[in-house]
Structures are given as C-alpha cells and as structure tokens.
Amino acid sequence: MTTLIINDKEYHLPLQGHETLLEVLRDQLGLTGTKTACQDAECGSCTVLINKKAVLSCLTLACAVAGEEITTIEGLAQGDQLHPLQQAFLDHGAVQCGFCTPGMILAAKALLDKNPKPTEEEIRQALDGNLCRCGGYLKIFDAVKQAGENLAKTKG
C-alpha cells in the first residue's frame, strides 16, 4: 500500500509502481482538475505542487512521492472561500477556456508562497512552463500581481 498525502488528506492506494502521479490523480482518484495536454512535459497543464514546488505530475512516479506534501488545484479553495489567486484570476479576466488555469494557478502559488511581491519578470519566469493557447498571459500576470498584493495584506 502506498500512502499519498494530497491536499492534506491521506489516500492509501494499492499501486504497482509504474503509475505516474498524473494518472493516479485523474484516473484513480477522480481529481480531474489536473489536466494534460501533451504528456510530453511541455504544456504544464499537469502542474501540481510537491513540497510547495511546482512540478509536472506527468513526469512524477506516484510511488516516488509517497508521504510528501502534494497540492492539486482542488486543494486551494477552503470550502466556499476561493484562494486569493483563484479570485484574482476571475477578477482580472485571466481565465478563458480554463484548461491551462489549474496548472497556471499552482505555478503562481509556488511563486507567491516564496515571494509575494514578484516583479513582472519573475512572474513570467515562474509561469514559463505553462502554455496558454487562448493567449491570456498578460491578464494572468495582472492576476498574479494582484493576488500577491492581497496575500501580503492578509498576512501583514
């Protein structure tokens, strides 16, 4: 039995060893918020946080990260209350088709958790692994900047 800790919840799964974290999330646990658009480590839609760092779940073996802190998009909102990033994405028109959005938000969260006042350059770099075909990058940068400011306010 492998224990995965996802969004502060423990899942005990009979894994064989060769399952990627992406497949376990989507196919076994029904957490379809994490997407995949390429399976080639290029699109970033499969981004999750492991120990607060943005990583690609399509390149991660589920067994390799047993017991580590895994965060998916489903873990951000607290019941009815959206995470400031989620709210900022809505407020700034940073969501179009939404397929890249979960990965994008998590990559942004990894940045803001370390650095709540990033420059635009730092935001661009943190999101360089997440493709958005609808082309919403500029609004996404605005949303991340705003979310950072809101997070700093609630903390400080």
Partner: peptide, 11 residues
C-alpha cells in the same frame, strides 16, 4: 497506462 510495468524501489 503511460508506462510499461516495472518494480519500483525507493532505498
């Protein structure tokens, strides 16, 4: 499955 089966070891 994305990968062929193998035995996984984590020393």
């Amino acid at each position: 499955m994305l990968l062929n089966p193998f035995k996984f070891h984590s020393p």
